[in-house]
């Protein structure tokens, strides 16, 4: 209970700063979330509300619980406390409005499927039980592959794709879901520059279409270029808000501690000045 009350304060503090917002306008809100692996807390009383229609990076040092934050918020792993609301509804009732892109390393790519098979998985919810994908569904899946530049690889076995191509297929699958909130776990991990560019273009298009996008991100140097907002974690909620006001050396120092060399911090703050 004690962590719940302290995090409740957090949330009060956060929302009182903003103007009065109705809960059904908040696309993704987490309240007082605590997660532990084998009695070791990974996330401690985290409260956060994602800004609607914005592209937000979730950043923090290794082991800060960035991926855990997404997984626990979605209910994929057990949590000790906390709840997630999507447009004011409990998340279990609103999963159709969410698209989740897991880490590429979370699956075995030797699975017997082609790129388009994987994208079609994003449509299974619409297709329904006991029915098969129709031509309409295949066309939609192809369109999604096209928007990530992978239309030529639709019938390629997924194990034969490069890491970047696999990541694009994952992204296409999320696009097929036609969600309102996109949660992505390190989509830029180990991808080539062209894929990175393609992914950024897709993220910007999503935001332009009014979607809310949260991305676990590792590379501090690109945060300023890619995102409008950040959420800074280090097991606890450190800070969140627009990049201009929140992505500051002071906040980064609080999240990363000694792990970020002062020269690196200087470099990032210089970028802030330019």
């Amino acid at each position: 209970m004690h962590d719940r009350s302290s995090s409740g304060l957090h949330l009060l503090h956060d929302t009182s700063a903003a103007h009065a917002v109705m809960p059904e306008d908040l696309p993704f809100t987490v309240q007082g979330m605590t997660v532990a692996y084998h009695h070791k807390p990974v996330l401690w009383g985290v409260s956060y509300s994602a800004p609607k229609g914005c592209l937000t990076a979730i950043i923090g040092p290794n082991g800060a619980g960035k991926s855990t934050f997404l997984k626990a918020a979605l209910g994929l792993i057990p949590k000790l406390s906390g709840e997630t609301k999507v447009f004011g509804e409990p998340i279990e009732k609103a999963l159709k409005r969410i698209a989740y892109v897991p880490q590429r390393s979370a699956v075995d790519w030797d699975f017997p499927a082609t790129a388009i098979d994987v994208v079609l998985m994003g449509l299974y919810g619409q297709i329904g039980w006991f029915r098969w994908p129709s031509r309409k569904h295949r066309q939609k899946a192809l369109d999604c592959l096209k928007s990530v530049g992978m239309q030529d690889f639709a019938n390629r076995q997924i194990g034969q794709l490069s890491g970047g191509q696999q990541q694009r297929v994952f992204l296409a699958r999320a696009l097929a879901q036609d969600a309102e909130v996109y949660l992505m776990d390190e989509p830029f991990a180990g991808v080539d520059a062209a894929t990175e560019k393609a992914i950024v273009a897709v993220l910007r298009q999503l935001v332009a279409d009014g979607k809310t996008v949260l991305v676990v991100h590792h590379d501090l140097e690109t945060v300023r270029d890619y995102y409008s907002h950040i959420l800074l974690l280090n097991g606890q909620h450190v800070a969140d808000g627009p990049v201009e006001t929140t992505f500051t050396p002071e906040n980064l120092q609080r999240a990363y501690g000694g792990r970020l060399a002062s020269t690196q911090l200087d470099g990032l703050s210089e970028a802030a000045g330019s």
Binding site: L74, P102, A106, V107, M121
Partner: peptide
């Protein structure tokens, strides 16, 4: 198929 390929995505899809 979905369960075997990507359990996390299956759960997140409801």
């Amino acid at each position: 198929s979905l369960l075997c390929f990507d359990e996390g995505f299956a759960a997140a899809s409801g």
